[in-house]
């Protein structure tokens, strides 16, 4: 991860130069290595968001790649005073929502959530294995939630975005995010309780 990405977390200052500004300017002039640096810094959160929304790895990869291509094509339209990472995440979100809408329209997709394994790079001790199992059951429960709930939980807890940043990405008022988070957590809690009861 680029140092500039961690700098952008939790900060949204409009007057100071944005952390991505130099790379964006160089990429606009046709410097492909600058654009590669931007992709390298954002590939994980973009892919992560796509995967949590779409629930299929192949589609998430395709959409994440399309996101960066769209960002490249529209670099001229990007407002440099705004955070670049939020702009790219908004593109990714819109592309994912298009696909989800198409899925609902066609209704060929099965309604059961796909069983996804979120790989961990940690050592394989017994304790870690239990830990991974707990995480996997949490991911599975998250997978049963609606796309809106998955999105808000992923952005807040996994990507550690502020409520203001999430509001920018989702295009809603910042005041509504905490309520959405609460409702998503509550749904997650009831799903997990039901799953535990089913397993017992």
């Amino acid at each position: 991860m680029l140092p500039s990405l961690s700098m952008s977390l939790g900060t949204m200052t409009a007057d100071a130069e944005q952390p991505w500004a130099q790379e964006v300017r160089r990429a606009r002039k046709g410097d492909s290595s600058a654009f590669a640096a931007l992709v390298r810094g954002l590939q994980r959160p973009v892919f992560g968001l796509c995967l949590r929304l779409l629930r299929t790895e192949a589609e998430a990869t395709e959409v994440a790649q399309e996101t960066f291509l769209r960002a490249y094509q529209n670099l001229e339209r990007f407002d440099e005073t705004r955070p670049f990472d939020l702009w790219v995440l908004t593109i990714a979100r819109n592309l994912c929502l298009d696909i989800l809408r198409r899925r609902q329209k066609v209704q060929t997709e099965d309604l059961e959530p796909h069983a996804l394994t979120f790989a961990s790079s940690e050592p394989n001790s017994e304790e870690k294995a239990i830990d991974n199992q707990q995480r996997q059951s949490l991911e599975d429960a998250m997978g049963t939630l609606s796309a809106d709930d998955r999105e808000v939980l992923a952005l807040y807890y996994v990507q550690k975005r502020t409520t203001k940043e999430i509001a920018v990405i989702m295009g809603v008022a910042p005041g509504t995010i905490m309520a959405r988070l609460f409702r998503a957590r509550e749904k997650l809690r009831t799903r997990m309780m039901a799953a535990e009861r089913g397993a017992a």
Binding site: A36, Q43, G48, A64, Q65, F118, S121, V158, K160
Partner: peptide, 17 residues
């Protein structure tokens, strides 16, 4: 939830983009 992390994209992701 705070212990969850984003998965890594495929190894050739950057090359493909």
């Amino acid at each position: 939830l705070l212990r969850l992390a984003d998965p890594l994209p495929p190894a050739d992701f950057l090359t493909q983009v």
